[in-house]
Write a protein that binds this DNA or RNA. Structure first.
Lengths: 280, 280
DNA sequence: GAGTGGTCTAGACCACTGT
DNA sequence: CAGTGGTCTAGACCACTCC
């Protein structure tokens, strides 16, 4: 039997009503970015509820990424940080760069191009391992116990120690061991230079597929990136294919969603006459 | 002066320690997806804390999207839902489809192709308005008070009433008013068919730029989509350009991040012989 | 009906921010 | 120093699930 044929009108929980009221004030502009919220005392006076219920409302707004709160200070309406654009056009730029002479490649790194910050101003760290992983091996189409090179890259702000970028790249070891230089992390300026490194072993990247989704960060990730509450992480897995459409590199990365925007360009084949058959 | 030259060792808050312990159990596999968590009573016994502190731990795990909780039932480790892949290759498919005869276009809709669900099994709704918006006008390069057509599309599961898709498209009105059919929402099968509609007014879409990021849903969005706690929304703005690289359509959409994955393919120009010299 | 988590209260202590 | 929010406790009532 259905429980409520004549549904009893239930008040929404008090903390939801408070949170909704504040959200509307923010959306209407009564509370501008940077403005402080009412104090907890004012809220529980205004709504005649206990402190903890008012706290619940503020906690919800925090979890939704609308406000910044901290001890000893009234919470303020969040000011959205500047967005870093990560464009798929960068793949082509990196490929073009790979053919240029050494000094030119060094001058323009991926970090500089997207973060507007020289790589020398970053606390950069690379770790190389050789692993086996049946799932990745499956993706590469190699034996499940075949050695895979794992390269982990992290850059942090030297002052704040907060992460600026973090990615992990996987390559079947047999593809690159003909050039011992590629197995040494000290030779690595940046993963963006990966296309040049593939060049030294005769591999040309012809296409890249990006897989993008998002999730909430773990507690550890939130403090590594210095994420405010309610900020998701964008996750990206890039798979690079060579001339034979063989996957040669898998690269996983995460980005804070409040300061990152992915931008992908799709060029379509023209309609006219007989449709031209080579894409982009 | 720095506050803590010899930082006093502070215990992490009890609810963080509890949450971390449970997270580790999940990551180690001691708690598999679908398994119930310890009850609150067990937790505050095990950690000798109050109920509310144990609640705090569970609330954090909920906010991080690790568990599903509900009244009267122990929270369970979340089982990730099946992912719907939204591929940029779909743009080309839609373009090819636009030239096909009517019956063929009707048979294969965007909804069917990506959701595996006929459009007839969905509660579909379209609303058309004419608006003015200086920000969009700026993007289109038209006068700031020029009329812009807004088309809102929503599809819901007829049984559960939950959203299955939601998007809003903007088009400068002058581009399409030569064909009155395009101003009537009842003629609209699905926004994916938009390329065919542009065809009727002599516009060919030549490229599409996707802007992708993520944010937490509002309370209203969470219930419209039936989102579990801790699930972000992926947001996408697609801008379509015609033969003259003029923006002709802006389309905003949101997708639940736990069941959506974007997939973008970038094809790179070959290196061989003389490198092509026009830079994208 | 017993047990569960969701909501709420009242009151306490502490860390941090301003002045 | 006063005032703020963050953490925590003890205890209560209710909605819901399962037996």
């Amino acid at each position: 039997m259905v429980t409520n044929p004549q549904p009893t009108i239930v008040q929404a929980p008090i903390h939801l009503r408070i949170a909704d009221d504040i959200r509307m004030q923010i959306e209407r502009g009564d509370l501008a970015p940077g403005d402080p919220l009412p104090t907890l005392a004012q809220l529980c006076d205004r709504w005649s509820c206990s402190m903890n219920s008012a706290r619940g409302a503020v906690a919800l707004l925090k979890a939704q990424g609308l406000i910044n709160a901290g001890r000893g200070r009234a919470p303020i309406v969040r000011v959205p940080p500047a967005r870093v654009i990560r464009s798929s056009e960068g793949h082509q730029v990196a490929k073009d760069l790979a053919l240029r002479p050494e000094d030119e490649r060094g001058a323009i790194g991926e970090a500089e191009a997207t973060l507007g910050m020289s790589i020398h101003d970053q606390d950069f760290n690379a770790t190389y391992n050789t692993i086996t992983d049946s799932e990745l091996a499956d993706l590469f189409g190699i034996a499940s116990n075949a050695p895979i090179m794992r390269r982990q890259f992290q850059a942090a702000d030297p002052r704040t120690r907060h992460l600026l970028s973090s990615s992990t790249s996987y390559i079947p070891r047999t593809l690159i061991e003909s050039n011992p230089d590629l197995l040494n992390p000290n030779n690595e300026p940046w993963p963006g230079g990966g296309q040049h490194q593939f060049l030294t072993v005769g591999i040309e990247i012809m296409s890249i597929i990006d897989h993008v989704t998002a999730r909430m960060p773990t507690t550890v990730e939130a403090q590594q990136w210095n994420l405010a509450d309610g900020v998701p992480l964008l996750t990206s897995r890039q798979i690079a294919f060579d001339r034979d459409d063989r996957p040669v590199d898998v690269s996983d990365a995460t980005y804070p969603a409040d300061r990152t925007e992915f931008r992908f360009t799709t060029r379509l084949r023209p309609w006219t006459t007989e449709a031209g058959d080579q894409p982009s």
